[in-house]
């Protein structure tokens, strides 16, 4: 299988990036290619990098509950460009009912605090496989 390429990014002004960096390291250990964007990214900048890098996955890390405001904007941009092949994963402090709301908007998986790396890697891998299969049909 082709190496999975993941964009890992914070979104908006929240600078709490420990989780994003730790997850990046874990994904690299699992053999994925990670493009780490870091802090102060806007929906626009994440979208732009996704296109340039031709990434399979976008992983957004949220601590400040800005997932309710900024993630939908990013999804809109991806939908407008027909980029349905990109897997969108949101991780961090995302309490109920937001995981379901985000999924309804088009987020493929929501990963809560304390999730272990084998679960994160397994979730991303199977979502990418599904999308690749769907694209090949």
């Amino acid at each position: 299988m082709k190496k999975i390429k993941v964009i890992v990014s914070k979104i908006g002004l929240d600078g709490h990036d420990v989780g994003a960096k730790v997850v990046s390291a874990m994904l690299r250990d699992a053999g994925m290619e990670v493009v780490y964007l870091g802090r102060f990214q806007s929906p626009e900048s994440i979208f732009k990098t996704t296109v340039e890098e031709d990434a399979d996955v976008i992983g957004i890390s949220c601590q400040s509950s800005n997932h309710t405001r900024l993630v939908p904007k990013l999804i809109d941009m991806l939908r407008k460009e027909g980029m349905n092949h990109v897997v969108i994963v949101v991780g961090g402090t995302i309490p109920d009912p937001f995981p379901e709301e985000l999924k309804a908007l088009g987020v493929d998986a929501v990963i809560g605090p304390g999730t272990l790396s084998n679960v994160i890697v397994g979730t991303i891998t199977s979502l990418v496989e599904q999308k690749r299969k769907a694209a090949a049909v």
Binding site: G12, L13, S42, S65, R69
Partner: peptide
């Protein structure tokens, strides 16, 4: 909140979604 700590106003394009969030 983040906009204040970063030194931008609540009506800044980066702040309009995040004013008062945390």
């Amino acid at each position: 909140d983040y906009p204040t700590q970063v030194g931008i106003d609540a009506d800044h394009p980066m702040a309009v979604d995040e004013a008062g969030l945390v």
